[in-house]
Design a binder for these strands. Structure first.
Length: 423
RNA sequence: GGUGGGAUGGCCGAGCGGUCGAAGGCACCUGCCUUGAAAGCAGGCGAGGGUGCAAGUCCUCCAGGGGUUCGAAUCCCCUUCCCACCGCCA
């Protein structure tokens, strides 16, 4: 959700910024409803004030031993009017919310205005494309040879898009998860074990609801949503709280499975582990004061980059253009790992500063000192990292001619010293 | 799933249906006192919103949502959450 006061005062600037993300966004209707809303509030409240005033006279009249019948009659008339005004206000507000809850965040000034993903700026590159010197295999050929991944059987269990790791495959991913959690914890992030199902309020906080409801699995029986990323659950963590500025920044890390319906997407080129309904991810999440948030974004990005570097994978970091930003983000860096089998870079991390967008929706605030007025804080999230896609990179980039795969050294302690994956 | 008990301001805690946004205590802030501190004294001290240059003023909020009533923190109904016990169970 956006700062309505700011939009009201800077309508052209706001619309221009939002159009840089989606040219179809118009604010005319929102501004009109905002005006109507405030008028309706004033009208409704003045009637309430009168109602209260007359209401207070009744006991006084009665105490004095006089009849209050006439006042009571007048009051019922005021009440009827007040109720009408109230109903009208509710109608306006629901229209207002429908629009305002659907609007994306305003991009940060430093974000390049463009609708074309091709304009995403590469801000860092690490390593090089591997030169195998032999016909290399893609991750599906490798995992089949090693017997560590089985999509045919997982389809029997569930259906398409749900990976089944076996033996060394399961072990390697677990090693990745533990390695990343340890790295993050050493960097000062508090580890959390999170619920995988969230209620609707939490879904709204992150910006996932109402607009992207169809991307989440919904347990209708209990009206709970299965998280597409830990970020959604983390958004609910401090909902409706006022934190002390001395507690900030709050930094969390959590491993969760992530579930995405991927409705409307399909692609023969995204086979195997590239895009699945269920995958694993370690998340970073920070709550900070507004003046800290861009420094924090660099911290998250650096944290994620460092982990990829330790794994020895070739990657590039891009600064996304306005048109490629997620709903809640004001600025985002993507970290993409080179996947030889796909012949392109693939996102393994996305680090975003959501500024006050989520805080406003979830009413997450902080107070400066003892006497400061509560203010919305800034939230940031970053993947560190998506392990399922990392698996592809590790397998494909570390393969040997015989189909075995050498395990990155940093993971070996997590694999009881195992140095390679062999049949 | 069943039964019973709860939910009030940062915390604790009172609140006959009628000046209750809410006693009292703790914590906190300001001033007095003090060499300094403590104690004591005086005052202040929730959030959101409308309006206004501002002082201010008005509205809303006692878990959430409905209802009864001229009037609800107080009465009724529903929901959620917490606690206890029973049932079931990793």
């Amino acid at each position: 959700m956006l700062d309505m006061k700011w939009i009201r005062e800077n309508p052209e600037e706001a619309e221009k910024a939002l159009k840089s993300r989606n040219p179809e966004i118009e604010l005319v209707r929102l501004l009109d409803l905002d005006l109507q809303r405030r008028e309706a509030i004033t009208h409704s409240e003045s009637l309430r004030a009168e109602q209260n005033k007359v209401g207070k006279e009744i006991p006084q009249r009665k105490k004095a031993g006089e009849s209050a019948d006439e006042l009571i009659a007048r009051l019922s008339e005021i009440k009827r009017e007040a109720q009408e005004a109230q109903d009208r206000l509710k109608g306006i507000e629901s229209g207002f919310e429908e629009i305002s809850l659907g609007l994306p965040n305003i991009p940060h000034d430093s974000v390049l205005r463009s609708l074309d993903k091709e304009d995403n700026q590469v801000v860092k590159t690490f390593g090089e494309k591997p030169d195998f010197g032999f016909p290399f295999k893609n991750h599906l050929e490798l995992t089949e040879g090693l017997g560590i991944l089985d999509f045919e059987r997982s389809a029997k269990i569930t259906g398409a898009g749900f990976p089944l790791y076996i033996g060394d495959g399961a072990r390697l991913e677990r090693a990745l998860i533990n390695f990343l959690l340890d790295e993050n914890e050493e960097a000062g992030f508090t580890p959390l074990g999170l619920p995988y199902l969230v209620n609707a309020e939490t879904g709204y906080t992150s910006g996932q609801l109402p607009k992207f409801a169809d991307q989440m699995y919904h347990v209708t029986e209990d009206d709970l949503y299965i998280i597409p990323t830990a970020e959604i659950a983390l958004g609910g963590l401090h909902r409706d709280e006022i934190l002390a500025d001395s507690e900030l920044p709050l930094r969390y890390t959590a491993y969760t499975a992530c579930f995405r319906r991927e409705a409307g997407t399909y692609g023969a080129e995204e086979r195997g582990l590239v895009r699945t309904h269920q995958f694993n991810k370690i998340e970073l999440f920070s709550l900070v004061t507004p003046e800290q948030s861009y420094e924090e974004l660099e911290l998250l990005r650096g944290r994620a980059e460092q982990s990829v570097e330790k794994l020895g994978l070739h990657y590039q970091t891009t600064d996304l253009v306005s048109g490629d930003l997620g709903q809640a983000a004001a600025k985002t860096y993507d970290i993409e790992v080179w996947l030889p089998g796909q012949d392109r870079f693939y996102e393994v991390s996305s680090c975003s500063n959501c500024e006050a967008y989520q805080a406003r929706r979830g009413n997450i605030r902080f107070r400066r000192g003892k006497d400061g007025k509560p203010e919305f804080l800034h939230t940031l999230n970053g993947s560190s990292l998506a392990t399922s896609r990392l698996m592809i990179g590790i397998l494909e980039c570390n393969q040997r001619e015989d189909g075995s795969v050498s395990i990155p050294e940093v993971l070996r302690p997590y694999m009881r010293g195992q140095e390679s994956l062999k049949k």
